[in-house]
Every structure is written in C-alpha cells, then in structure tokens.
Measured scan of single mutants.
Amino acid sequence: EPLWIRPDAPSRCTWQLGRPASESPHHHTAPAKSPKILPDILKKIGDTPMVRINKIGKKFGLKCELLAKCEFFNAGGSVKDRISLRMIEDAERDGTLKPGDTIIEPTSGNTGIGLALAAAVRGYRCIIVMPEKMSSEKVDVLRALGAEIVRTPTNARFDSPESHVGVAWRLKNEIPNSHILDQYRNASNPLAHYDTTADEILQQCDGKLDMLVASVGTGGTITGIARKLKEKCPGCRIIGVDPEGSILAEPEELNQTEQTTYEVEGIGYDFIPTVLDRTVVDKWFKSNDEEAFTFARMLIAQEGLLCGGSAGSTVAVAVKAAQELQEGQRCVVILPDSVRNYMTKFLSDRWMLQKGFLKEEDLTEKKPWWWHLRVQELGLSAPLTVLPTITCGHTIEILREKGFDQAPVVDEAGVILGMVTLGNMLSSLLAGKVQPSDQVGKVIYKQFKQIRLTDTLGRLSHILEMDHFALVVHEQIQYHSTGKSSQRQMVFGVVTAIDLLNFVAAQERDQK
C-alpha cells in the first residue's frame, strides 16, 4: 500500500453525458421521505430548503428570480454533511469501515464536522487534520463531537509532509485500522450531490432553472449537481466560483495573481482535486475576500440567511453572472454553511477592521482624538531585521541585547519573508524542534498583521487588541530589464502597544 495517494490523481470516472444510468458502476440512493420521529440526527441530513432572495437581486438590477439552496440546514450545519454520511455509508457497505475503526480526514473543517457527527452516532474514533487558518468555532464544535484535532501550517503546499493532507496520511500509516475516506478522491463525494442535492433542486424548481452558481473546494458539490442538471435540464448554465489565490478556475489566465492566501474558508485549493470535473462548468468567476464577507453580511442583514463567507462569494458572483438572465428565468445559488463557524471572524466588526474589510468610518461609535491620525505620526525608528541564514542562537542574543521581542526576517534585497519572535524561538528550542545552530528560517511564521503608514491609529489599535505587534510595510514598484514591473513589500518598522501608548501619553502631556 502506498504511503500516500495524491489528492489530485487523474480521475478514473467514466461518467458521460447521455450515458444510461443503468451502466453506472456505483451504488445510487434515492431521496427517502422522513418519518415524523427521526431514529437519529443523521436522518436530518439532506432535504434542505430552497429560499427566495428578495432584496439583493433587485438591489443589483437582476431581472431573474434568485433562489438560495440553504445547505446550513443540514444536521452539522453545512453541505459537507451529505458527503460525510455518504462516504461512511459506502465504506461500511463495501466492508472497508468496521466497528471500532478510526476515521482520519484532512479538511478545512466542515467535512470534519460532518464526519465527527456521523462518527459520534456510529461509534468510530475520528481524527481531523486541518490548517491553522480555520476558525476556532470549527475546532470547538469538533472537540465537542469527540474528534481529535491536529493543526497544520496554512501556507504548507498540499504535497508537503507538513500539509493537512501529508499529516493525515502519516497518521494513517501509524494508526492500525485507520482510514482516510479522502473527500478529494472519493466518488461518494460527487455521488452524494448527484443522487440527492441535484434531485432536490430539480424537484423544488419543478425542473425549471436557467443558471446554477456554486463555490468550489473539493469540487464534489458542483460536479455532482452539474452532471445531473446537464442530464435533466441541459439549458442550465453552470457557474463556478473560485477565490483569488486558488488555481481551480479555467482558463488558467484567471488564476494569475501574486496573491497566495485568502481568508474565506472551505473553497479554493492549490491543486485540482480528483473529484472535480471542470468540463461540466460553463464559466468560472474569481471572487475576493472583501466581496465575500460584504455579501455574507448582506445576506444575514437583508435576507435573514445566517450563512458563512463562501455563501457571500457565491452570491457576489451570482449578481454578476445572472445579469444575462431575463424576467421569468431563474438562478439558484448554493449557500454551503452557517455563520456559526465564523462568529469571531467576519461577523465581528473588530475582525473586519483588522483585516481591512471594514473602515473605521463605517462604525458610528465615538472615537478618541488620536483615532484618525496616521501611523506615520508615530515617528517610528528604523527596524531591526535579520536574514533567514542567521542562526536561532545568534538571533536570540541580538533580540535580548537590543531589547526586542520580535524581528522581521528579510532577504538580501529587503523583501519581507516573515517574522521571528523570542517566545516562538525559545519554545521551539525547548520542544526540540530546532537547535541553536539551525537557521532562523526554520522558525519563520507568517501569521502576523501588516499595516501601512497611511493607515489610521484606530486601525492599529484594533490590531493591537488581539496581537502583540504589527509590521509596518510599504510597497515598492521595481522595474526589470524586460520592461515588466513587480510590486514588493518592504519593512518600514515594527509597532507595539507600548509605542502607541507612549505616543498618546506624550501628545497629551505636551497639550497640557
């Protein structure tokens, strides 16, 4: 057995438009009618409502009807409940999964919650491996369901041993009777949507819809739904939504950006999952974080739909894509998950301010006199920076000697690579993860907040409520011999709460 199987392995699926269902090699399930009293909570997966979006479509000038398939009504709160249950049931049916076995899954959280929910009911041990950027709410729900959680670096490539995929496979090879159901490759993922989600949409719309818009992560949702719609409703256009920084969209030119990270969760990847059939997507749109969270908040405030950030991405694209539809036509959007997962993220004004998705003037509360002053007023001194090749031991000596707790790590040209902190280095040394002679590049981390000289002290204040420091950066445009230009970030300084307090105190003292 291989040590790991690539999540982007070539698909062996034989589905073709027009091929009889009787030739399918898979076990198919028909939607079942729910009894009045459910035998367990797993029976509350599927049969989610279709809700008309009344205000947002009109606000953006849509002539067509805009409908939302509300997947956050599933038992675990997301569309991923469907595939989690289906993968477990299919693994039980073919004898792969037996009582007492362990389920391991690399996930952005929602599939993990679905699997942990099913594992709690069915009696399996469950280990979820997820990147650090995923919300604390997801972690809390997983723990409450009895799952064990392993976190991995957000910026690790999918084929790196440190990625959530790599760590999951390492655990599988170490733990007896453990299984990775593997949402990236498992046919049960798109089949769950082909058999149930798509049929529900067709039934709820009486077979009449002209466009379907869905955000894409593993691709199982859009693949399964689109294949069924292509068979039953061939005139329906399928629109895929991919965040900026991901590479799922086609044509490839759409993916060209210097951005590699994004805040919206559960969609987009740096590889093409095996289950994603991009041939059934008629057109791709890219979405960005700001519009995703703005539209998610709009869905909550104006439509009462308590959905997550990827739902915002989907609707932001839908109001663009559906401009081509006329009166009497219908566009369906998939709202994948609930706001429950993001209470401390985009639902929080403070978080939105820190990330730059909300401006101070958007909030009406009274601010102190210094709130709208610029960061450049602080008069920061030149920063202490270190090269990635310097040793951890030497870096600790320098920081202690100069009285700093942290320093930016830059390359020879001064471009920011990340940050090192005294606390992080000492804990890594004590844990045996690094040696004093190791290069400081081994303990770089990139989960820090950046701020510009033109940003306000109010925004800085919000950042420092949650973080010990902020890195002050400025952009530099560099022209190359080819005539092309590129933008790079340079370090201007490091600012802490002490710097802000000293500035405010000094100004008030001078005024007296």
Rank of each mutant, 00 (worst) to 15 (best):
G308M: 02
A413R: 13
A506I: 09
V443H: 03
Q406S: 05
L387N: 10
K446G: 07
E475P: 10
W371T: 12
L429H: 12
G312F: 01
E253W: 08
Q487R: 15
E508C: 11
Q489E: 12
L430V: 12
G268E: 02
Q323L: 15
E475F: 09
I247S: 08
F293T: 01
T261R: 10
G312M: 03
L430M: 08
A497L: 02
L353K: 10
I300R: 01
Q326G: 12
A249K: 04
M419I: 14
A407Q: 11
T389N: 15
V375I: 13
K484V: 15
L248W: 04
R278D: 00
L358S: 03
I334F: 09
F293I: 01
L387Q: 13
V410W: 07
A382Y: 04
K286S: 01
S348T: 12
T482K: 04
E465D: 14
S486C: 15
I247M: 11
D337F: 03
I300V: 06
V420Q: 07
A292D: 07
F271W: 02
G418V: 01
E377N: 04
T385A: 14
S481K: 13
V415E: 15
V280N: 03
A301M: 12
P243T: 05
A322C: 08
N255L: 07
I396V: 12
T344P: 03
C307A: 06
E263Y: 15
F404K: 02
H462S: 14
V409T: 13
E361D: 13
A249T: 01
G458A: 13
I477D: 08
M419F: 15
F295L: 11
K283P: 10
V280A: 13
W369P: 07
A311R: 03
Q507E: 15
T482N: 15
T454Q: 10
S313D: 05
V317D: 07
V241S: 15
T294E: 11
L501K: 04
M419Y: 13
F469L: 12
F492D: 13
S313M: 04
S428N: 11
T482R: 14
M466H: 12
H462Q: 15
E253I: 14
A431H: 03
K446W: 14
E291C: 12
T344I: 07
S427R: 10
D362W: 09
G240K: 05
W284L: 00
C392A: 14
T385K: 10
E360Y: 14
A497I: 12
R374I: 12
H462F: 15
E412H: 11
A506M: 10
S437R: 14
G268M: 00
N341S: 05
S381W: 11
T421R: 12
N424Q: 12
C307M: 05
L384C: 09
H462N: 08
V420Y: 15
A382P: 14
T482G: 04
M298I: 15
E465G: 14
C307H: 05
Q329V: 04
T314I: 13
V440T: 01
G432W: 07
E263P: 03
P336H: 05
V275L: 11
V504K: 12
C331Q: 02
L429C: 12
A413G: 14
Q450R: 03
T257F: 11
E324S: 10
D438R: 10
F492L: 14
K367Q: 15
K442V: 15
W351N: 00
C307S: 14
A470F: 06
G379C: 11
Q450V: 08
D455V: 12
M425D: 08
D289H: 01
I267S: 04
E290F: 05
R340A: 01
P336G: 08
Q326I: 10
Q478I: 11
T482P: 13
D499L: 01
V473H: 08
E263A: 15
T496M: 07
F357S: 01
T314N: 06
V410T: 15
V275P: 03
E397L: 12
A470T: 15
G414Y: 09
A497D: 12
E263W: 08
V241E: 07
V410M: 15
S310F: 02
A311E: 03
Q489D: 04
M425V: 15
Q435Y: 11
L422F: 14
E250V: 14
L387W: 13
A505S: 14
P388K: 10
W284S: 00
F469S: 12
M466E: 10
E365I: 14
V319C: 14
L387A: 11
I300H: 04
D467W: 13
L325V: 10
E250K: 15
W370R: 05
Q329W: 02
V440E: 03
P251L: 07
V443A: 12
Q447S: 12
M343E: 02
V495W: 09
I463V: 15
A249R: 04
C307V: 03
P383N: 08
D438M: 15
F271G: 02
E250R: 12
I239E: 05
T274R: 11
L387E: 14
Q439I: 12
E250H: 10
I267D: 05
T257M: 15
V434I: 13
Y262E: 00
E401Q: 15
A318W: 00
G245Q: 00
T389C: 04
V443C: 14
T421Q: 12
T364V: 03
D242T: 01
D455E: 11
Q302H: 12
K345D: 00
L501S: 03
G414N: 02
A296E: 06
L363D: 15
G245Y: 01
L380D: 09
F503M: 13
K442W: 12
N288K: 12
Y479T: 14
K442Y: 13
I390N: 14
G483S: 15
V264Y: 02
A249N: 04
V332Q: 03
L276S: 04
I390S: 10
L387R: 15
Q450H: 09
I267R: 00
L363H: 12
E377I: 09
G423S: 09
W351V: 00
L471N: 13
E377T: 02
Y479H: 03
S481M: 13
K442A: 13
E361A: 02
D455Y: 10
Q326C: 11
D467G: 13
R350Q: 14
V264L: 07
Y262A: 02
S461M: 14
A497H: 07
P408T: 03
T344W: 04
W351T: 00
Q507R: 15
L378H: 05
A413P: 11
F357Y: 11
P408Y: 00
S348Y: 04
M425E: 05
L325G: 05
D242G: 00
D277V: 01
L422D: 09
V275T: 03
W370K: 05
E401K: 15
A382S: 11
R509W: 10
V317C: 10
E508F: 15
F448K: 07
T274E: 02
I396E: 08
S437G: 13
D277H: 07
R488P: 09
S481T: 12
H474V: 11
Q259C: 09
K345R: 08
V473F: 15
P336W: 05
P436R: 15
M466F: 15
E361L: 09
A470Q: 08
G304L: 03
E397W: 11
D277A: 08
L417P: 13
L358M: 13
A506L: 05
V333W: 01
G304C: 02
H394V: 10
Q489V: 14
T496S: 15
L464Q: 13
R400Y: 12
S348R: 13
L353N: 03
N341L: 00
Y445H: 12
R350I: 07
L430C: 12
Q478A: 10
K345V: 03
R350S: 12
A322Q: 01
I416F: 07
D270V: 03
R488W: 15
K484M: 13
V280M: 10
F295K: 10
S338Y: 02
W370S: 05
F285Y: 14
I334N: 00
F285T: 07
V420S: 13
P368K: 10
S310Y: 01
E291W: 09
I498V: 12
R509M: 14
I477K: 02
G458N: 08
R330C: 15
D270C: 05
F295P: 09
A296C: 08
L373A: 11
P388M: 07
I267G: 03
F346T: 03
R509Q: 14
Q376N: 11
H394I: 12
R297P: 01
S313E: 09
K320H: 04
T261C: 09
P388F: 05
K283G: 05
L325D: 01
G403W: 12
L430K: 13
L422Y: 04
P273H: 06
G240C: 07
E465H: 06
